[in-house]
């Protein structure tokens, strides 16, 4: 019984909308009108178009780079909180999570003011006499997109890794070392396999949210770093207004993520296989 209110809410306002988005992705758009249909033309159009494919590839690569930075850093942080600081680790976790709730738009905007051509970092470096001219690659580039996304996603990736490590007793790490495992072997043969579900979730969070974000590329990305999220957003509230096409893109992002998730999981399993 207590499951009902939220359950119904989920069904009506999450399940049905996602389904209707799926249905729309099979429709056609004619001008501002939607024509019910059952066609994969939208999907085909995205895959075939050089423009869309390029944007999609860039999105995937930015997502992968962000995840490749976020997951190891979050893993190290979770390890330190769990096994070095133990009880005090909880406090660090609170601090990390607090940053997650401290203004999503604000933090992206702040990176623009830090990384900008006349921004904080450049003016500080110039003030210190380390550089003559401002570093231009810092802003409106993939570098700035990745720097910003890492800051946004890190707290989300720390959480599943930390809870997975809470389930690993210190005894197991000591047992491995006692039996002769070097720190490297300990990581590969015991710790990573034991926290594998946490690693998977952290990766999924980091990649999916990086690939699906459109505010970051809008505010700190340049014309050369448009991501699929920008194009999807355009189809619904902007210059494009082709709902079926945007819906198809959304599902392609989700599908690609799913495939990558499976691939990465296999890769990690293969690397830690021993």
């Amino acid at each position: 019984m207590p499951l009902l209110p939220a359950g119904l809410f989920y069904a009506l306002f999450f399940g049905v909308p996602m389904l209707s988005l799926l249905v729309i992705s099979l429709w056609r758009a004619q001008g501002f009108n939607l024509i019910p249909d059952f066609t994969f033309a939208n999907y085909q159009k995205i895959i075939v178009s050089d423009l869309y494919r390029g944007v999609l590839l860039r999105t995937v690569s930015v997502g992968l780079i962000a995840a490749a930075i976020v997951v190891p850093v979050a893993f190290t942080l979770a390890y330190i909180m769990r096994f070095v600081f133990e009880r005090r680790g909880q406090l660090i976790l609170q601090l990390v999570m607090l940053s997650l709730f401290s203004g999503y738009l604000v933090r992206i905007y702040a990176w623009r003011t830090i990384l900008g051509k006349q921004g904080l970092l450049n003016s500080a470096l110039q003030w210190l006499g380390l550089i003559e001219e401002p570093l231009e690659f810092l802003i409106y580039s993939q570098v700035s997109v990745v720097i910003t996304l890492v800051g946004l996603l890190l707290p989300l990736a720390v959480l599943p890794l930390y809870s997975a490590m809470l389930n690993v007793p210190r005894d197991h790490l000591e047992a491995a070392r006692d039996l002769g495992a070097s720190p490297f072997h300990l990581l590969r043969t015991v710790l990573i396999p034991m926290v594998m579900p946490g690693v998977r979730t952290a990766f999924a969070f980091a990649f999916l949210l990086a690939a699906g974000d459109y505010v970051t590329p809008t505010l700190v990305g340049g014309t050369q770093s448009v991501m699929i999220g920008n194009i999807i957003a355009d189809q619904f509230r902007g210059t494009g207004t082709n709902w079926p096409l945007g819906a198809a893109m959304a599902f392609i992002v989700v599908g690609v993520t799913l495939l990558l998730y499976l691939a990465i999981t296999q890769l990690i399993r293969w690397v830690t296989k021993w």
Binding site: A6, Y10, F13, F14, V16, P17, M18, S20, L21, I24, A204, F205, L208, L209, A211, G212, D213, Y214, G229, I232, A233, Q235, F236, R237, W243, G246, A247, A250, V253, V254
Partner: peptide, 21 residues
């Protein structure tokens, strides 16, 4: 796990799905 889905699906996708609905 199912109840966690809205946190995993990008907000953009949730936003447009609701708009369509």
């Amino acid at each position: 796990s199912i109840s966690m889905l809205p946190a995993i699906v990008p907000l953009l996708v949730i936003g447009i799905a609701l708009a369509v609905f």
